[in-house]
Amino acid sequence: MSALYADAVGVLEGWQAPSAEQDVLRKDYLAHLAARGDEGLWKPCSAGHITASALVVDPPRERVLLTLHATLRMWLQMGGHCEPEDTALAQAALREATEESGLPGLRLLAPQPVRLDRHLTPCAWHLDVQYAALAPEDALPVMSDESLDLRWFGYDEVADVADTSVRTLLAETRALL
């Protein structure tokens, strides 16, 4: 098994889910990995695959950076598929957040996930492991080719543009702040 597989299992086994619903997802993710091994991490796995994301927050300014995803056409946190060079879920989430936001110097709010979210996408089910990342002061985001738009939203504005998953991720991130 790969280092990423070992990390994913370790993260999910050690994570204290904040609710019974989240614990069910945690166990489902572990069962998915146990049944598929490394294959369960990668995009070609049509039964679904682990993804990693990070909500980029700027606590002093009470705002969050969201991307208007080019394929899904929804305002989302940064994130996506694990890559062969990834050795840890947290590192994959930070890599994705950096690539999609153009913000150098992002750092995770905590080494453990904030929450889990399973959702259907055009390629397969995403078993998303969601983190939070802190934006460096005065950093200017740069839109990637995966986005139609990239924009800061005040915490109170997120409910008007994002789905329940993003709203919940923001609420749980704010509770950690």
Rank of each mutant, 00 (worst) to 15 (best):
L148K: 03
H49K: 06
Q91K: 12
H49D: 07
L120S: 13
R118W: 12
G10I: 15
T121M: 11
W42E: 08
V56W: 06
C82A: 02
L127S: 00
D128G: 08
V24G: 04
H126W: 04
P84I: 07
C123D: 07
M1A: 06
A132V: 06
P111K: 08
W75A: 05
P104H: 14
M1G: 04
H119S: 05
D145V: 11
L176C: 01
L33F: 02
T87K: 09
L140C: 05
C123Q: 11
L25G: 02
V9A: 13
G79K: 01
T168Y: 06
A6H: 14
I50V: 11
L89S: 11
A20V: 12
M74D: 08
H126V: 04
S147K: 10
L25P: 02
Y5C: 10
L12I: 01
P136N: 10
A47G: 14
A93T: 07
L94N: 10
E146T: 11
A90Q: 12
S46E: 14
E85P: 15
L127D: 00
S19I: 13
L120P: 01
G10N: 13
V56R: 00
C45T: 09
D163E: 15
D156R: 13
G14E: 04
A93Y: 12
P141D: 14
L76W: 02
D28F: 03
L76R: 14
S2E: 04
V11R: 03
L169P: 01
R107L: 01
H126P: 01
I50L: 13
A35W: 11
D160L: 04
G10K: 09
V158D: 05
L176M: 15
A110Y: 03
P84S: 15
L12K: 02
E96Y: 04
V56G: 07
C123T: 07
Q16P: 04
E62P: 01
A110Q: 10
D117H: 08
A124L: 00
L150W: 05
P141M: 12
A124M: 07
Q91A: 15
L94C: 13
P59V: 02
M78V: 11
M78Q: 10
P44H: 06
D23R: 11
L68Q: 03
D117K: 09
E62C: 03
A8C: 13
L148C: 12
D128L: 00
A139L: 12
A93L: 13
R167D: 04
L140F: 08
V114P: 03
E85N: 07
V24W: 09
Q112H: 14
V114R: 08
V11K: 07
E85C: 03
W75S: 05
L140Y: 13
V161N: 01
A92W: 07
L106S: 06
S19V: 09
A93D: 07
L103S: 12
L94Q: 07
L103M: 15
A34K: 14
T121R: 09
L148F: 00
L33V: 00
L33D: 00
T98N: 11
L76Q: 13
M78A: 10
G14K: 09
L25S: 00
L76P: 10
A70I: 13
L134E: 00
M1T: 05
